[in-house]
Design a protein around this nucleic acid. Structure first.
Lengths: 237, 237
DNA sequence: GCGGATATAATGTCTATACATTATTGAGAC
DNA sequence: GTCTCAATAATGTATAGACATTATATCCGC
């Protein structure tokens, strides 16, 4: 019934820090003091404090002690799902339509290793046959040789890449932009209409794998990021 | 010189999972097997596997074992800094100009507890005297009584709140929107010009603290999120 | 005072063991 | 067969100790 002791120690300090009772820069008791206070072993308090440190709530310094961190930025978790899955989750039918596919030398697009070949894929994402995203993608063929054989006529490259190519680093840029003529045509909106632009570059090790630029119809898509209570879907006990 | 054993175990499995060598759904060795393989105690492998579980790379089930998670979404860290600090970091001068301040009953704006009072603050953020964000904010006065006494004539409410009010949960929505007439006026752009809209709602416990809606001039602001190698600023050893 | 060696206080890691918890398996009752 | 219940295999938490690491403080020579 009662929560584990280590978890209680952790959540007690979490609460005291978030409530402001423990101010940024303030020093926490040492592990030795805490094991006295809570009547438990050092491993238990150490694990609790390490969890707080992992979460960024405190900083621990040898010989000095543990201190409440100074909050600088709001770090939030942004979930960027596979578009096909997300549309399906909304109960709509996802379709991808390839518009252009060609292979070019790298360098022109400032992407990929010099001299390598780059696959360019332009396409349109549709939900229930309504266009909602125009996608321009570059893939480094050297990093993903298998891709040459895949038919992307109706399969979204993102879905395929997500399943077939491991990556360990990514950077996403989010901006707003008025739709240019051709993009407006594909999205079936007036030129100049606001679109949400998501650009993502993905790496494995130091090799670029793919760069994608997606224009979303603003009336059909937005992004949500959360902080705290990860998975608030838990039912109360 | 050599890294701690537990960390080596953790990073070895991390690499094997990210490289795809261990496929999603695949089962990892049990803790008992791993302590044989690595010649260490159970606590060590247990901590390593728990760290992988915390990072979402594996799932652990009692009696069943540890399994590589199926990657569903790209979880990225989105840093939302204080606007005043961010502008300063770019070497520009930040200024906030209050446009409207009034107190109204809650309920109208679907914010705050019924019957409570809500402070509405509209204002403009300027970088080097160029407007780049129009902000509409609601604050629950019951949750932040001190705010009644603060002069926001030139102090951005977000900066003040970040420093004075602890929160433990937040949700951010990011979208694109054409500027309406009055917003276009404030941002000094043509009506209909694309703006990046960031809406954030912040809670302490179950109480709403503030809701803010910011329209950014698309040509002056974007957001960046990263995954992997947190703080890539580390120099190579 | 000032700089540099040394002691020390705190965290970091690890061992070996114990018992708790829980989902699955499998045996037995029906 | 299928339902129920107990055995079991795995993870979850905790203990008590040991040694490693490292930033800070202190002392000492100058």
């Amino acid at each position: 019934m009662t929560k584990p002791l280590g978890e209680r120690i952790r959540s007690q300090f979490e609460a005291r820090i978030l409530s402001g009772e423990l101010a940024p820069g303030e020093r926490l008791p040492t592990e030795a003091e805490l094991m006295q206070q809570f009547g438990c072993s050092r491993m238990t308090v150490s694990k609790a404090l390490s969890a707080l440190a992992d979460a960024g709530l405190i900083e621990r310094r040898k010989r000095a002690g543990s201190f409440v961190s100074r909050p600088r930025v709001h770090s939030m978790v942004l979930d960027i799902p596979d578009l096909a899955e997300e549309v399906a989750a909304r109960g709509q039918t996802h379709r991808y339509r390839l518009i252009r596919r060609d292979v070019s030398e790298a360098g022109i697009a400032h992407f990929g290793p010099a001299g390598g070949q780059v696959l360019a894929l332009d396409g349109l994402h549709l939900a229930d046959n309504v266009p909602f995203a125009f996608e321009q993608r570059l893939v480094d063929i050297a990093a993903v040789p298998d891709i040459a054989d895949v038919d992307f006529g109706h399969l979204a490259p993102g879905s395929w890449l997500l399943r077939h190519v491991p990556w360990d680093e990514a950077e996403t840029r989010i901006a707003a932009e008025g739709a240019s003529g051709s993009i407006a045509d594909w999205l079936d909106v007036e030129p100049g209409t606001a679109t949400l632009v998501v650009e993502r570059r993905t790496w494995r090790g130091s090799d670029s794998i793919t760069f994608v630029r997606q224009h979303f119809r603003a009336d059909q898509y937005d992004l949500v990021a959360r902080f705290g209570q990860r998975s608030a879907s838990r039912a109360p006990a």
